[in-house]
């Protein structure tokens, strides 16, 4: 049985709202949420905004982001997840900063129509990369932040030694609460 996409989205939204309400009902907050929008290097230069979600304590956190597009000729979806140990080095200009050191992975799937005809087939391909990840966020106004999160995918050792990585980088702007 195939679950309709609308149902999955509905359940995810409901679950997110339930988690947010639950966390906010707890007297002493032990978790923080981040929600924001991304510009990802994985969309190959297209300025499509992506979704960014983060869940963290004061010393560690995880983040998940996704972006993609779909048109008559091609589609592209990228998913990235990172886990960080978090540090707070101090003020930059007037806002506090947050640094994360950790690991991450990203997965993308893309498809391109074989030719311009309506009924033509589509060639799909996907890839996965794992590697070290860093985060540097600047909180310019209260909980509002902007920054970069990047994951350097490990590939061939000799290329990595030449500082070549399969990176998945995203500029993130969002709010932490």
């Amino acid at each position: 049985m195939q679950i309709p996409k609308k149902s999955i989205i509905f359940y995810l939204i409901t679950l997110s709202i339930a988690i947010i309400i639950t966390i906010n009902m707890i007297d002493s907050s032990f978790a923080y949420f981040k929600i924001g929008s991304t510009l990802s290097s994985s969309t190959r230069g297209r300025a499509h905004p992506g979704l960014y979600l983060g869940l963290e304590t004061s010393s560690a956190g995880i983040s998940f982001s996704t972006a993609g597009y779909n048109n008559t000729l091609q589609y592209f979806s990228v998913y990235q997840a990172n886990a960080f140990a978090l540090f707070y080095p101090g003020q930059f200009l007037w806002g506090k900063t947050e640094v994360g050191l950790g690991v991450g992975f990203f997965y993308y799937k893309m498809g391109l129509k074989d030719n311009m005809e309506i009924n033509s087939g589509m060639t799909d391909r996907g890839n996965l990369a794992v590697g070290p990840a860093v985060r540097a966020f600047w909180f310019f106004l209260g909980g509002f932040f902007v920054g970069i999160e990047t994951m350097l995918g490990i590939r061939e050792p000799y290329l990595n030694a030449l500082l070549c990585f399969q990176d998945s980088t995203q500029a993130v702007a969002g709010i932490s609460f």
């Binding site: 510009l39 990802s40 290097s41 969309t43 230069g45 297209r46 300025a47 499509h48 070290p132 860093v134 540097a136 970069i148 999160e149 990047t150 994951m151 350097l152 500082l163 990585f165 990176d167 998945s168 980088t169 995203q170 500029a171």
Partner: peptide, 18 residues
Amino acid sequence: EVAGVSSYHNYTSGHALI
């Protein structure tokens, strides 16, 4: 240094520097 750069029109990339 491990860092990323991004522009308004999504010229985005990650870099490792030594």
